[in-house]
Simulated assay, not measured.
Amino acid sequence: MAKTLHPMWPPANVEAVCRVLASTDRPGLSGSEISKLLAMRGVADVNPTANKRDRLWAALMTKQQANQASNCIIRFINDAMAPGRFVHDSARFAALKDALNEPLALMALRVNDQGEVARATGASTLDEVAKLAGRLRTELNRRGIHPEIVKYCEEEILRKSLFHAVFEATKGVAERLRQMSKSNLDGSKLVDFCFSTKNPPPVVRINNFITETEISEHTGFANLLRGVFGTFRNPPAHTPRAAAGWTISEPDALDLFAMLSFMHRRLDGATV
């Protein structure tokens, strides 16, 4: 029986898939995992000294070009996503699956729950990709959300738990302030300790803190922190969600993540 040859994938789509599989952070494949998976299917490692993404892209593109078919890429994904590889790390499987389904949606494909590339509803725009992928992380990536956000609520995002993702992301800002200031305080007391103008210069300042405008901006930023902590952190921390009826919609959660991202970017350039 003749083997079905699947159409070649555009180089940009292959690159997007490789960017996911070979990402430097979790849940990307390690260099040794890539070596093992390429060897399993007899795919030549044509550029072994390159970084993981370029190395994988070169290997799969070379094989696809030689075969004039994308079968080698599909097989690589199937091997990489074999459920048996994730028995003790189901969160990593979910993260890779969701991330792969974004570029695959542009080719009317997806990774199913069995870890295999399968047919799916296609997408032609990034908006459609986000809708089909159906996950919060997609929109966060599109908005360029600060990596500190995901650092503190990755598991909650994977579980699509908006309530807990918002709670953990807000806690993440407080934790960063504690690390910067070496303080053990929390909430408004932490903000007061870091940004108080009573004994200048403040412990943490987001600008030169010289002109009236700079001092006003500094004070406003501190008030913004207090407001976010009071609105999004304290209610979930002190009252069970069901008892308080505390809910948040996805649009509101995304807006909050954008606000927290702004805060982290200002802290990136802050002086301690």
Results as ranks from 00 to 15, higher is better:
30 S>A: 14
30 S>L: 14
32 S>F: 10
34 I>L: 15
35 S>C: 10
36 K>I: 06
36 K>Y: 11
37 L>D: 01
37 L>F: 00
37 L>H: 00
37 L>A: 01
38 L>M: 10
39 A>S: 13
39 A>Q: 13
40 M>N: 15
41 R>W: 01
41 R>T: 03
41 R>L: 05
42 G>R: 06
42 G>C: 09
43 V>F: 05
45 D>N: 14
47 N>K: 15
48 P>A: 08
49 T>W: 13
49 T>I: 09
50 A>H: 12
51 N>W: 13
52 K>E: 08
54 D>M: 09
54 D>T: 11
55 R>K: 14
56 L>C: 04
57 W>Y: 12
57 W>P: 02
58 A>W: 06
59 A>N: 06
59 A>E: 05
59 A>G: 04
59 A>Q: 11
60 L>D: 07
60 L>W: 03
61 M>L: 06
62 T>Y: 02
62 T>M: 12
62 T>A: 15
63 K>P: 05
63 K>D: 06
63 K>T: 11
65 Q>T: 03
65 Q>S: 14
66 A>W: 09
66 A>P: 04
67 N>E: 11
67 N>P: 00
69 A>F: 11
69 A>G: 08
70 S>V: 00
71 N>L: 06
72 C>F: 02
72 C>I: 04
72 C>T: 07
72 C>S: 14
73 I>C: 02
73 I>H: 02
73 I>P: 02
73 I>Q: 05
74 I>A: 11
74 I>H: 10
77 I>V: 13
77 I>Q: 03
77 I>H: 01
78 N>Q: 07
79 D>F: 00
79 D>M: 00
79 D>W: 00
81 M>E: 02
82 A>R: 07
84 G>K: 10
84 G>S: 07
85 R>I: 00
85 R>H: 12
85 R>C: 09
86 F>S: 10
87 V>M: 10
88 H>C: 03
88 H>L: 14
88 H>P: 07
89 D>A: 12
89 D>M: 14
90 S>K: 14
90 S>I: 02
90 S>C: 00
92 R>E: 15
92 R>V: 09
93 F>G: 10
96 L>Q: 10
96 L>W: 07
96 L>A: 03
96 L>H: 05
97 K>C: 06
97 K>M: 13
98 D>R: 15
98 D>S: 07
100 L>C: 05
100 L>D: 02
101 N>T: 12
102 E>C: 11
102 E>T: 09
